[in-house]
Amino acid sequence: MITKSQKQLDSSFHSINIFLQIFAGIFLLLTFFLSSVFAVNNTGYIKGMGAVLREQPSIHSKSSFKLKRGTKVLPLVSKGIWQKVKAGENQGWLLRGQISKFPVKRKKLILGQKVQLQSASGRRLRLRTFSAVVGVKGLLDSKGKKISPFQTDYAALEWLENRPFDEENSVIFLTLTE
């Protein structure tokens, strides 16, 4: 056995140290990315026309505070269908169905989005390919059979979509009791 000199030992220790530093760096980078990926976002938002915070998890309990639609809340504890939340400085119980995971946004109306069938000059677009013609004529396969065996009725659907719609009045209508 040849005994290593102090210098050799020192240099080997140094090289180990460098490796350790590199691994630690990689580890830290990994934790950084992973922690950003798996970060838990607990924030909830109040749905509907607003919600009442109650003191106890019961429908008969006193209401302590009223929250507006879209208010940010932080869920704390859940108990059955009830959820304790913190909104600003107020704490209280809500029904869990009243909390949305995502920010509350305007409703989507599909009637406004019409498919453009005309070109800019006002003429109907010419269908160039065979498949496009088939597409307009109602989806046939190569043997001329209709692809879907079921009938559709878009006229009735449009009738339904054109019915008047008023959320606020509906909610008031719902709260009326005989």
Partner: peptide, 15 residues
Amino acid sequence: SQIGTGISAQLGRPE
């Protein structure tokens, strides 16, 4: 639709 909208406005999907 009034009954349904009344419920969905409060407890349905907001979007």
